[in-house]
Structure formats: structure tokens, C-alpha cells
Design a protein around this nucleic acid. Structure first.
Lengths: 192, 192
DNA sequence: AGACAATTAGACAATAATAGTCTAGTTGTC
DNA sequence: GACAACTAGACTATTATTGTCTAATTGTCT
């Protein structure tokens, strides 16, 4: 890792809790510079604007998460437990850290305004990865999608949609993993 | 309680977490109005300025705390346990709620700027109450201050100073009550 | 109905905070 | 000394916030 990347990482590490605490709008570049232990001028040497900085943070978080999601899907266990883990990773790394913020809505709005492409691409990739896992497992004869009359990609889409729905349910904080486990049991029963 | 006081209380209840979360400067009147579920215009009908609102909150917190401190000092137990409880109450109600904030320093600064008189009066009253408790106990012959060559008010001042010192010690969050208990044991050993 | 008090959304000007840029000076490294 | 990275601080343009005001709305009382 280059010096430059290390510094970028350090700044983003410092910026994250500032955004979580204050939201995008109220988090000032001065706050972020102070948190990173550098001057405001230096901060602008690394990022041309607050929006670019936020976008870089979103890009890094998505990249890390998708790496972990891939790891989860190539790990041990049957396809259901791997899907369950992958979805849990996606939720834990990309959603939970911000959902706890009082400005969660504003942060998600900022993300869609500044990193919509990244966010949608990651979501599409998650669906594709889940579909691939299902497809491989079906080819191996371990599950059967015939009874559902659905392609792997369709099932993967439903899994991700369910994840979204469970996430958005009220008071879903501690319930997410539990509800997601239930959904996976349901899935397992349907296509095993 | 009049309707007016109930509304005032409701607003202050809503404003407190906003100040704790954002600090005085970044907490806007719009934030507070939203938290209280009223319009900004209505907020200005109840408080003429943000500073006046903050001051009212400080006044209320100090009044409540001093009431609880008095209760603690007239409660059961020997004078040492009563002092320990009283100081713990003072700390828990007036300091701990803000010390947890990321903007703790700014909040204490704002308080000294806007409610210095209230704050110093409460502190003086705490010392006076402790001194009175010590004095009564000495009159009853249960403790002796002679060996220290100190008046009750002097001992009370030292107790409060110790409280401050322990509060300000680094990482004192969970250690406060424990260290304060130790100090009280020390006090007990000295003048019992 | 009509008077009344409390509230609201929204406009408004004055003030303050912030973003982004720039300069001059510092520090540490080759 | 040359160089790159950094810094404090000044600076303007933009944006946010404060505190005030008006007109409209709502609910309450007579």
C-alpha cells in the first residue's frame, strides 16, 4: 500500500465516525480534519471536495464489503448458510454502521446522491454472486429450482429484496439476523 | 403544573438530547423544534433565544439535582454514606449526561458562558449542604474534626474538590463511583 | 356564529458558519 | 540547498441559522 493510500485510508477512517455522528450536512471539513489530526488545507490536498471525500468513503466501504461477501460465498457450509452469511456481511458492513445514526436517512440520501452508481452496482453484484452460487449448487444436483419455476437470478433477487424488507422493518436492529435466518430456512425448505 | 410549565418541560426534554448529540453550536433551533414536535415559531414563543433555552435547561437540571442532593443528605445511613450518595447524585445528574458527549467540552463551556451563576451557586450550595451534614454529625458527637483542625465547611470544600478531580481524571467514566467510594473511606478513617 | 389563544408555514433581513482557494512559512528528507 | 508535504491563516462566495414578522389555521370557550 502506497503512502498516499495509507493517508487516504487514515482520513476515511477518521471521517466515518464524524459522518455517522453528525450526518453529511453537519459534518464539516474542519471536523473531519480535526478527527484525522491534519489541517484543513491538507485535507483538501487529498480530496477536492467534501462530496468527493464522502464518495471515496462509500467506494471503499462497498469494495471491502463485496470482497467479504465473496469470501463468505466461497467459504464452507452449504449454499444456504453461505447465502445467510453473505447477506449478514452485506448488512453489517454497509447498513448497520449508519442505521444507528440519528441522521441515518440523511446519510443514505447523501450516499444515493453521491455514490448511486457504486451502490447500485454493489447490489447488482450481490445478486449476481448469489445467483452464481445457486446455479452452481443446482448444477451439482444439490438443490432444485424446478419446483419454483424460477431461474437462479430470480431467486437471488428475491433474497436481496427480502433482505431490504427485513432491514427496513421497524425496530429491526437486533431482529435482522434472526429474521434473515428464518427467511433462509424458508428458502431451504422450498428448494432443497 | 401549569400548561405553560408542562410545555416548557417538554421542550427542554426534547432539547437535551439534541444538545448532547450536537453540542451547543451545532444544535439548531430547527433541530430542537423538530425534536419537540413543534414549529420553530412556536419554539420562539416559549424561549426568546437559543441561549435562553439552554440556560433554562441548565437551571432546571441544577434545581432538580439539588433537590435530589438534599434528599440524599437527609436520607438513611451514616454521614459518610449520605455524602457519598449526594456526590454521586450530583455527578450522575449534572456531569455524566454531558461527559459522554463528543462535544462535552463545548457544552461545559456553553454552560459556563450562559449559566455560570447557576452553576457556581449549585456548587456552593452543595458545599454548604455537606458542611451542614458534617456539622450536625459532629454536634451529635459521632465524628470529630478536631484532629484535622478543620471546620466542616473546609472538609466539605475538599470533598467537592476531590469530586472534581476524580471527574476530570482521564478515562474516569466508569471509575468515578469507585474512586469516590475510596475517597469517602479515606474520609471516614480520618474523622470517625 | 364569533371571539380568542395557540399554533403553524413560510417569508424575511442580519448574522454566522462553511466550502473551497490561495499564500507564505515550516518541517523533514534526500 | 532542493524538494515534497504540511500548516496556519486569510480570503471570497455560498449556505445555514438566528430572530422577527405576517397571514392563515386550528381548537376552545361563550
Amino acid at each position: 500500500m502506497s503512502e498516499r493510500d495509507a493517508k487516504t485510508d487514515h482520513i476515511l477512517d477518521a471521517a466515518l465516525p464524524v459522518f455517522v455522528r453528525h450526518g453529511f450536512r453537519k459534518a464539516s471539513m474542519a471536523d473531519i480534519a480535526r478527527a484525522a489530526g491534519i489541517s484543513r488545507a491538507s485535507l483538501y490536498l487529498n480530496f477536492n471536495s467534501k462530496e468527493e471525500l464522502f464518495r471515496a468513503g462509500s467506494i471503499r466501504a462497498h469494495a471491502r464489503t463485496m470482497r467479504d461477501v465473496e469470501t463468505a460465498l466461497t467459504g464452507p457450509g452449504d449454499v444456504f448458510s453461505r447465502i445467510e452469511t453473505a447477506v449478514a456481511v452485506f448488512q453489517r458492513e454497509l447498513i448497520a454502521p449508519f442505521a444507528g445514526s440519528a441522521d441515518a436517512m440523511e446519510l443514505f440520501d447523501a450516499n444515493m446522491a453521491l455514490a448511486k452508481d457504486i451502490t447500485l452496482a454493489a447490489r447488482a453484484r450481490l445478486i449476481a454472486l448469489l445467483a452464481q452460487a445457486l446455479s452452481d449448487t443446482e448444477t451439482a444436483g444439490l438443490i432444485g429450482l424446478g419446483s419454483l419455476q424460477a431461474r437462479p437470478a430470480d431467486v437471488a433477487s428475491v433474497v436481496v429484496a427480502a433482505m431490504d424488507g427485513i432491514k427496513h422493518a421497524e425496530g429491526a436492529g437486533p431482529h435482522f439476523e434472526e429474521q434473515m435466518r428464518l427467511f433462509v430456512r424458508l428458502l431451504r425448505a422450498a428448494i432443497s
